[in-house]
Simulated scan of single mutants.
Amino acid sequence: MTGGRGRLLPYLLVLPGVGWLVLFFAVPAVQLGAASLYDPAGSLTDGYAMTWAVGNYPAALRAYWPQFVRSFLYAGTATLIGVALGYPLAYAIARKAGRWRNLLLVCVVAPMFTSFLVRTLAWKTILSDTGWLVGALRAVHLLGPDGRLLATPAAVVAGLVYNFLPFLVLPLYASLERLDPRLLEAAGDLYAGPVRTFRRVTLPLSMPGLVAGVLLFFIPAAGDYVNAELLGAPNQYMVGNVIDSAYLVRLDYPQASALSFLLLAAVLVLVLGWLRRPRGLRRNRSRGSHRECRPAGLALAGRALGAGGRAAGARLPVPADRRRRRAVVQPAVESAVVRLPRVHAGQLAASVRGGRAV
């Protein structure tokens, strides 16, 4: 009885999460897909008839493909900027902050204590034509007399970076904080420079946090509409603004549902394609070199041995002086050989039959 309960326990622990996903993701997704196939001639007052109107999808895509392209362009640009800003920040907090680590983490998370809308409105005030930032840029002639920051693509991308940056920094910090510092020291002892150490040790070991952070950043940024609404102009509207208008202003539910389903499908295709690419690269590398399948620190050690330590009895270089990075190659201790006295085969057989020890 106890064994049966033990086998069922993992499934019972997963059950609440599965129920949550089914109730608040699977069921709304099915309803959204059904609404996207309604008759576009219907209305909210007269009702919508299920006519399996598949033509809603190509019609919506033909009408609003610029907004789709703009959404992924803004989200991709914001994600790249977020990685360029978030990775050094997460690395500094995890490896260099010391006793200031908790304070810096609070500073990263503190903007999320306020509403998303309030934070975006604050950026609208900062980037306004009468704000201090525009005045300072005009004073140093980086903006013309009629130049502006608000209602531009740069303002929308800046808002996306600011609002979603904590979702990228926190997973990166979790991965970098668990990084064993002895691996970095070993890479330095094996004469790897800072760039090579980062490329071969730090970056591969922090890749799970980087992948999680990029997904948490890119997915909501692609469907966002608040930043484009408050910081942009109609020329900067994203597909989220079109869906919002179709649902709440034009009351065109079939088209809004079709646009939502297309956005969901496009994000899934991009994310799955991006996630599957590193696996294929790892498989290709493993066919060419067996050493690439090992952890980064061991791969560096293998290359060091392969370059200068293939002589018989060579061990890993042990640093004598860490400041000068000198190495001493210690010869391996010869294996001990136990020499037994020669025993004739007949004597051995007789001793075995007689039960006597040799």
Rank of each mutant, 00 (worst) to 15 (best):
V54G: 09
W20N: 05
V14R: 13
P28M: 06
A35M: 12
A41D: 10
A63S: 14
N56E: 12
A59G: 05
L23G: 09
A63Q: 15
L44N: 03
G55L: 11
V22L: 15
A49T: 12
L61Q: 06
T51W: 00
D39V: 02
T45Q: 13
A59W: 11
L61P: 00
S36Y: 04
L32S: 02
V18S: 11
W65N: 04
V30L: 15
T51L: 06
V69F: 12
L61T: 07
Y74M: 03
F72M: 05
A63L: 13
S36L: 01
L21F: 15
S43C: 07
S43L: 09
A35Y: 06
Q67V: 00
A53C: 09
G17N: 13
G19W: 11
Y64H: 15
F25K: 08
A49I: 06
F25A: 13
V22K: 05
V30P: 07
A41F: 11
L32N: 03
D39F: 04
N56W: 04
V69D: 08
F72N: 00
G55E: 14
V22Q: 07
P28H: 04
S43Y: 08
V54Y: 12
V30H: 08
A26W: 13
P66L: 11
S36F: 06
V18Y: 11
V27P: 00
Y74G: 00
P66H: 10
L13N: 03
G47Q: 02
M50N: 09
V30A: 13
T45I: 13
W65G: 01
Q67Y: 10
A75F: 00
G47A: 05
A35C: 05
Q31W: 12
V30F: 13
Q67L: 02
W52P: 02
M50D: 09
V69H: 10
L15F: 13
D46T: 14
W52G: 05
Q31L: 15
V27K: 05
F68K: 05
G33S: 12
P66W: 09
F68M: 09
L61H: 07
L13E: 08
W52V: 05
L15E: 01
A53H: 15
A63P: 01
D46G: 14
P66Y: 09
M50T: 07
P58A: 10
V69A: 14
A59Y: 08
R70C: 01
Q67R: 02
L15A: 15
P58N: 09
V14G: 08
P66I: 00
G47T: 01
V27Y: 13
G17V: 14
W20T: 04
A60W: 03
R62M: 10
P66T: 03
Y57A: 00
W52D: 02
P28K: 06
L61D: 05
L23C: 11
G19I: 12
V27C: 04
P40E: 01
S43K: 10
G33I: 02
V30T: 08
Y48L: 02
L32D: 04
A41T: 12
P16R: 10
Q67C: 02
W65K: 03
G47M: 06
L13A: 14
A29I: 01
V69K: 09
V14A: 15
A26P: 08
F25W: 10
P40Y: 02
D46P: 01
G42V: 01
M50E: 10
Y48H: 03
V22F: 13
